[in-house]
Amino acid sequence: MDIVLQQLVNGLTLGSVYGLIAIGYTMVYGIIGMINFAHGDVYMVSAYITAIAIALLTFFGIESFPIIIIGTLFLTVAVTGAYGWVIERVAYRPLRNSSRLSVLISAIGMSLILQNYVQLSQGANQQGVPTLLTGAIRFSVGDGFVQITYMKLLILLISLLGMGVLTYVIQKTKLGRMCRATQQDRKMASILGIDTDKVISTVFVIGAMMAALAGVLITLDYGAFDFYVGFIIGIKAFTAAVLGGIGSLPGAMLGGLILGLSEALFAGLISSDYKDVFSFSLLVLILIIRPSGLLGKPEVEKV
């Protein structure tokens, strides 16, 4: 019983992080119909920026944890957002009117460039950040106990907050309306006076910012990272996006949570070696039953 509860807690935090990264995949897919394969590497870049930001802040003699975490979040989100903007500008916008395949190849190229650039500039070794937040809440359940570290609690809190703010922005604000209009009919949106190139840039920046949130939180929790860390988590988040229905924002969040929860439960109860196998099998299963994902709409041929 205690294991199930413990894994539920772990799965929830893992899932909310998957959800944050999946947002980047799903929004970009929704708006320009491409899979941004460099997105996982944007996450990886944000892990390095986190370490740099923490080093900078401690260098200036700041030691209180709340200031460090808030400062790191702001710095990392801002810098990673700038990365997102530059990537779109350099690798995708020049190919806006060419076939989908060339943009896909460009994305893979961008992913390799990011990995190698980080490897060259930061070294190939594993890096780490010190543990800043220790301590945990413990509940006793039966004869065992469930432990929630403060860090896990923080992850859950910040990622849910991030998702909430984003949902509000997309549903209620002018920017969100412009994004949704561009997603549904880009040419028509531009005929109504919306600068669609700017909207697409904004979507890339939002995606990168969400990945940066995840990057800061996971890096602070795990402590260790290297230049290849974006690959597996990128693939997992992509799976979550497809699971929830790619192109759908609530779908990405839901897909992330489902993937995280089921993966944690499988790892805790059955076998942690086969947890990746399980999550991808789950994807296959859901795609057989609902080819457009849980919340996705089936593609209708435009006439």
Binding site: R177, M178, R180, A181, Q184, K187, M188, G193, I194
Partner: peptide
Amino acid sequence: RLFKEMSVVENLLVAQH
């Protein structure tokens, strides 16, 4: 070519931004 998944009001709001 309306934005079919947005409400009528939103269709008109988006044109005014």
